[in-house]
Design a protein around this nucleic acid. Structure first.
Lengths: 107, 107
DNA sequence: TGTTTATATAACAAGTAAGTTATATAAAAG
DNA sequence: CTTTTATATAACTTACTTGTTATATAAACA
């Protein structure tokens, strides 16, 4: 699961999360993604490269433009891994509930 | 949501994800967490500090030991943020389905 | 009390990340 | 064909990360 490194690492940056949030509203070109940020175009281009490398976005070629949109696969992978933690936390809660329930009568 | 930076960043490291996977099986002390890795104790101690800072684990004091266990809050936060992407991807799929459905008759 | 055990911290080296400016490329427009 | 527009890449700087070894602290034990 080497790709989780890239996916989580990509999501660790607030600019990249903001880009994903923007793409959640629909496709956007590089310049459209540059506009809302106080960053240069090369900086955004590199963020997009990171997101693409992590499988979080895909791009198509449209003349000189490169419209980006969300890709589905990485999120599914992340969800799957987090599911392990979720289940463990639920189990631990159940265990705690059990402990508390067992303690109640004596109190 | 400044904590998402810390949470995703913490999850980006495979050693830290392995530690979390171990803690999903139950509480463990620092030395118990060092054992399965080819890393020194200070390295693991720092990983644990990162995980704690991200709200992914909590520790209690038990004599000279510091048993660690999973903390629930951060995973919930992450899930919440990913929910935004999930919903967007579903919507985009629906949209694509719509487009494909609209195309079918003409083909 | 002196030693061992469990953990944390400091100091440092090497690698990676994220920003910048300058420049390259290639399609579009005139 | 020349210019503009959209994007990518290179070179560089600064800062952070992750590992190491050496050392500190404090509880447990003998």
């Amino acid at each position: 699961m080497a790709n989780l490194d890239a996916a989580f690492s990509a999501l660790a940056d607030p600019t990249r999360r903001a880009i994903l949030a923007r793409l959640a509203l629909g496709e956007a070109t590089v310049m459209e993604l540059v506009e809302p940020f106080e960053l240069t175009q090369p900086a955004i281009s590199r963020h997009l490269k990171v997101l693409e490398g992590a499988g979080l976005i895909v791009r198509r070629v449209e003349g000189t433009k490169r419209p980006c949109r969300l890709a589905p696969t990485a999120v599914a992978e992340i969800d799957q891994w987090l599911g392990m933690l979720r289940r463990a936390l639920e189990t631990n809660y159940d265990r705690l509930d059990g402990v508390l329930a067992a303690m109640k009568p004596e109190q």
